[in-house]
C-alpha cells in the first residue's frame, strides 16, 4: 500500500508521524517528497547508496529561425520567455517545462535543453530499510519533476510511506497521486483546521481514502473535533502535547524509542490505516 502523510498547515507533525510509523512498520519504505525542505533524514540513521541529479527541460531559441513574432512569450503562463524587439530572453529557472512555447512557434525555432534542478538520494537505514528523499536547488520554481522522479523510482516497492510537503500546491498534488490511502496530521488550532480543510478537498477530488491524526492534542479548542464529525472523517488517533516530546524532536530523536504512550499511539494509527490489509 502507498500511504501519503500530509497536513495542509506546516509544523503539525507530518515528519514525526512518517519517521516513527516507518520505524514501526517492518515492511515499508519511506520517501520524503518535501523537496524544498526535506527533514525526515534528520531523524533517521542511514547510508546514502546513490545520489542522482534530476533535470528539467527549458526552451532554447534558434536566432536564425526566430522572427521575433512574440507568440512564445504570449503563451508562457510563467513569464519565463520574453520577446524584445531584438531577441528572445529565456528565464530558465522560471520555466515549468510545459512545452507550450515550442508548440506555438510557427518557425519551429524552439528546441529543449536540459538543466539540473536538484538531486535524489536513495539510502538504506541501519536496519536495511529503503529511505529516499529529494532536494530542489535554491531558486527553482517547481519541484514537481523531482517529486515525480522520486516516486517513479520507488513506487515499484509494494509498501511506501510518503512524507508530503505542507500546503496543497503542485508538489503536494504530485506527492499524493497514486496513493491508496492518506493520513492528514493536524492540530487543534484554527490554522490547523483551516489548512486541513484545503487538503481534505484535494484528497476528495483525488478520490483517496483518508483519516486524521490530531497531534498536539489536549487544548480546549474543539473546532477540529466538530469539523471531523460534521464531515464524517475518521479519527485515526490523537497524540497528546507534551514538552518532553518537543525536546526529543529538537534533538532529532525518534519518539517511538523514548515514549511508550507515543508508541501505543503509533500502533493504533497503524492499525487504523492498515485495516483490511493482510500485513502490518
Amino acid at each position: 500500500m502507498k500511504i501519503a502523510i500530509l497536513s495542509g498547515k506546516g509544523g503539525t507533525g507530518k515528519t514525526t508521524l512518517a519517521t516513527n510509523l516507518f520505524t514501526y512498520l517492518e515492511d515499508y519504505a519511506l520517501i520524503d517528497t518535501d523537496i524544498e525542505e526535506p527533514n525526515s533524514h534528520l531523524f533517521l540513521d542511514f547510508t546514502i547508496q546513490d545520489k542522482t541529479p534530476v533535470y528539467k527541460d527549458y526552451p532554447v531559441v534558434d536566432p536564425n529561425r526566430c522572427t521575433l513574432c512574440g507568440k512564445c512569450g504570449e503563451h508562457c503562463n510563467f513569464n519565463a520567455i520574453i520577446v524584445t524587439a531584438k531577441k528572445v530572453i529565456v528565464s530558465e529557472d522560471l520555466c515549468h517545462s510545459c512545452g507550450f512555447c515550442k508548440a506555438v512557434c510557427p518557425e519551429k525555432a524552439i528546441t529543449y535543453a536540459k538543466k539540473s534542478i536538484g538531486d535524489i538520494y536513495h539510502t538504506k537505514t541501519s536496519s536495511e530499510k529503503d529511505f529516499s528523499y529529494g532536494l530542489l536547488n535554491t531558486g527553482e520554481v517547481s519541484g514537481v519533476v523531482l517529486v515525480e522522479t522520486l516516486k517513479s523510482e520507488t513506487f515499484a516497492m509494494p509498501n511506501v510511506l510518503i512524507d508530503c510537503p505542507p500546503g496543497a500546491a503542485c508538489t503536494t498534488a504530485a506527492s499524493i497521486e497514486g496513493a491508496d490511502k492518506a493520513i492528514i496530521v493536524s492540530e487543534p488550532t484554527p490554522f490547523g483546521v483551516s489548512d486541513m480543510d484545503i487538503v481534505v478537498e484535494l484528497l476528495n477530488n483525488a478520490g483517496i481514502d483518508f483519516g486524521v491524526v490530531i497531534n498536539k492534542a489536549g487544548s480546549a479548542d474543539t473546532e477540529i473535533y466538530d469539523y471531523l464529525e460534521k464531515n464524517h472523517i475518521p479519527l485515526y488517533g490523537e497524540i497528546l502535547y507534551k514538552a518532553s516530546r518537543a525536546r526529543h524532536y529538537s534533538k532529532g530523536e525518534l519518539l517511538i524509542y523514548h515514549d511508550e504512550a507515543f508508541k501505543e499511539n503509533i500502533k493504533t494509527i497503524a492499525a487504523h490505516v492498515l485495516e483490511g490489509e493482510h500485513h502490518a
Binding site: G73, N79, A80, L94
Partner: peptide
Amino acid sequence: EAKKESSGAGNKATKILG
C-alpha cells in the same frame, strides 16, 4: 498587469514597459 503574477512579475512588468 504583472502585479498578480505568481512568478516572473519582473519579466512581465518589463515587457509591459518595453
